[in-house]
Nucleic acid binder design. Sequence first.
DNA 1: ACCTGAACACCGTTCAAGT
DNA 2: ACCTGAACACCGTTCAAGT
Lengths: 184, 184
Amino acid sequence: MSSPSSSTVGMPRQALQQEQIGQTAIVLLDDGGIESLSMRRLGSRLGITAAALHWHVRSRHDLLLLAADTVWGQIPLPRLEDLEWRPALLAMADNLRSMLSRHPWLLTAMTLQPLDGPCRDRHDEHLIAFCETSGLTRQDAEQAAHSIVAFALGAALATAPGRYVSFGLQSILDGVEAGLAAHR
Amino acid sequence: MSSPSSSTVGMPRQALQQEQIGQTAIVLLDDGGIESLSMRRLGSRLGITAAALHWHVRSRHDLLLLAADTVWGQIPLPRLEDLEWRPALLAMADNLRSMLSRHPWLLTAMTLQPLDGPCRDRHDEHLIAFCETSGLTRQDAEQAAHSIVAFALGAALATAPGRYVSFGLQSILDGVEAGLAAHR
DNA sequence: ACCTGAACACCGTTCAAGT
DNA sequence: ACCTGAACACCGTTCAAGT
C-alpha cells in the first residue's frame, strides 16, 4: 500500500514482509497493550531500525490499522447454510467477544481512529447476511447487526463478568424477532 | 489523595488545586484526545513544571482517573420521582451518549485501565435504582443497568450514525419489560 | 509545602547517505 | 529497493536541591 507496486509477477517479498510485520506487531500488542508497540521495539524484533520500518509502513497509525484488520480476520465466520439465524448470531457475538479478550488493545485502537479494513467489512457483511436470513429487510438487518456489534464491544469495554453479556444480547435478538412479527 | 492531609480546617488549597488540575486536563483532552495530555503540557498551562505536577498527582494514570470521574460527574441524573422507568432509562442513556460525544477520550481511557470512581459509581447506582422502580429484582436490575451502559459505550465506540442507537436500546428495554411479565 | 533543573530512558518521524 | 545514523522535538518519572 505504501510502495508503488513493481511490475513483477506476484508481490514476492513486500507482501510477506507486510504480513510478518503485522504478526509481530500483534505479538507486542498482545502482551503489553498499545503502549508497548513502538517503532523502535518492533523494528528491533524484526532486526531493523525504526527508521527502516518507516519504509515498510507509513506511520504507527497505519501499523495499528494493519494489526487491527488482521485480528478481525481471525474471527471464524459460521457458514450461512449451517445454522439458524439465532444460534448463528449468538455464535458470532461470542466469537467477537473471545477475539476481543485475546486482543484487548483493539478496543483502544478503535477509540483512537476509525479502523475500517477488508476483514472488518467482511465480518459486518456476514453478520448482516445472517440477520437477513431471519427475514429482516436489508435496512433492519443493518440496524440489528450494528446493535449486536455495539453491544459486544461495549460489554468487552465494561469488562462484563460474562453472565451479564447474555441479557442484553438476548434482548436484542428478541427485538429482532419482534420486528419480524410486526412486519408480517 | 496523594498528600497526607494537613490537620487544618477545610482542605484550603490542595482540594482547589486538584479540581483545577482536573478541569485543565479535561480541556487538553477535549481538543486533541488522550495523546495531547502530557505532564509537560498540562504543567505549562498551570504555570508549573512537569516535575512539579508530579507533586500534586502521582502519575499520568492518576490524572486520567481524575479527569474521567469528573466527566462522569457531569452527567445529569433525572430524579427518581420525576419519571417513569422507561423514559428515565432512555434519558440516562442519552445523557451518557452526549457526555461521551463531548469527551471521546473517555472511551480510550476506559480501555487502558479500569476507571472506578465515586461519580461513576453514583451513576451506576442511579441507573440500577431506576431499573428497580420497574419492579425488577436487584440482581435483574443490575444486569439491565449493565446492559444499558454496555450498549451506550459500544454504540459510541462504533460511532453509530445516531438512528442506529435506538433499535438496540429499545430491544433491551423491551427485554426488561418481558422479564417483568415473566416474574409476575 | 511546593517548586525547579537536570538527568535518564524512552518516544515518532525525517532525511541525507550508503549499498 | 532497502537500510543506517544522526538529528529534532518530544515523552513520563525521579531526585537532589532550593525556598
